[in-house]
Amino acid sequence: MICIREKLLAQAESRSARGDKTMIKGVETKVDLRLRCEGKLLSVRQALQHVHQFLSVQAVPCALVEDIDLVLSEAMTNIVRHGYGGIDGVIECDLVVNDTSVDCCLSDTGRSFDPAGAGRAPPEPDDLAEGGYGWFLIRSLTNKLSYTREGGRNVLRFSVSAMQGMGKDGAEVQVLSCG
């Protein structure tokens, strides 16, 4: 895995350790993260562990880090399963850290899709569905959500704010950063 502190100092590209079969390459500035990972579930898992660590170092509130982790996991899993669907590909993830929110941009060269109708209705718990929660969660935890197809690329943009999705339980928001 990539060492964040060294990268922050060097502001240079780095690669995952030799022998690591998944490819993750990132470039960071003090507040931004650009990350590329293979369109595979294990690579997504590793990339998100890196994002989690990066945001924690930036002193982003723990609840916000967890929301971003979840939204990215849902969106990137969809890209792997439906966008690439077994075909090799790369997912690019750009993050910009603001005072109370994080802007995210995901792009891939997989199949195009139209998320306009996805996740509009909340899941019915008594259905005991084993899937179909992803877009509902993405919509619940983001704002400024947009999807465009740009020159053969799917581009999904959204912002995640500290209070998003908390509803009446807003008091639960933690201001402590993640350890």
Partner: peptide, 16 residues
């Protein structure tokens, strides 16, 4: 954990 509890609450699976 708080994050896991939140997912159960958002999906209302905490009622199941």
């Amino acid at each position: 954990s708080p994050a896991v509890r939140k997912l159960f609450r958002l999906t209302r699976m905490d009622t199941v």
